[in-house]
Design a protein around this nucleic acid. Sequence first.
DNA 1: CCCGACACGGTGC
DNA 2: GCACCGTGTCGGG
Length: 169
Amino acid sequence: MIVHYAFTETPLGEVLIASDEQGLCFMGFTEENRAEALADLERRIKPASLVEDKSDQWITQVHAWLSAGMIGEHHLPLSLHGTPFQVAVWKALLEIPYGTVVSYQAIARAIGRPKAVRAVGTAIGRNNLSILIPCHRVLTTSGGIGGYRWGIARKQRLLEQEGVGWKEL
DNA sequence: CCCGACACGGTGC
DNA sequence: GCACCGTGTCGGG
């Protein structure tokens, strides 16, 4: 499978973006280590033949959305690579409207596995499309910020930008 | 409020 | 089999 990729800047730091025939399949912060970001991409999306391509149609569209400030929904085609359970969780995340938040427990119920709360947390953390799949809109039932693969600070900034007040939940 | 203990389900080794 | 975990709940400081 051919996978196109490119690096680009966002308001929250540099990201590595990748897409395949179905759509965008990866977006992750490089954290100043492009080699590691690429290794991560290769681990998650395989088998894959990586080809750098900054003019890939979907990559340029994400770039445009990112440059515009990541305001509102993005409507970009996503290619979900994962176990059936993970894909179910990620699809549930895509149903969360811009500017609203839900709990890990609510996601567990939404996919019909009310007791798999912890596994849901793990699946959310393994989501390949940070920001594009709104994993930052999931908080703990007690209103706590919860975790974030790319650092709590980024999660807070994303929520703040969407106008979510988490201080008194 | 902040622990500690435990149940919980999916995943990787 | 076993040890992880972006959780939740309960009980005790």
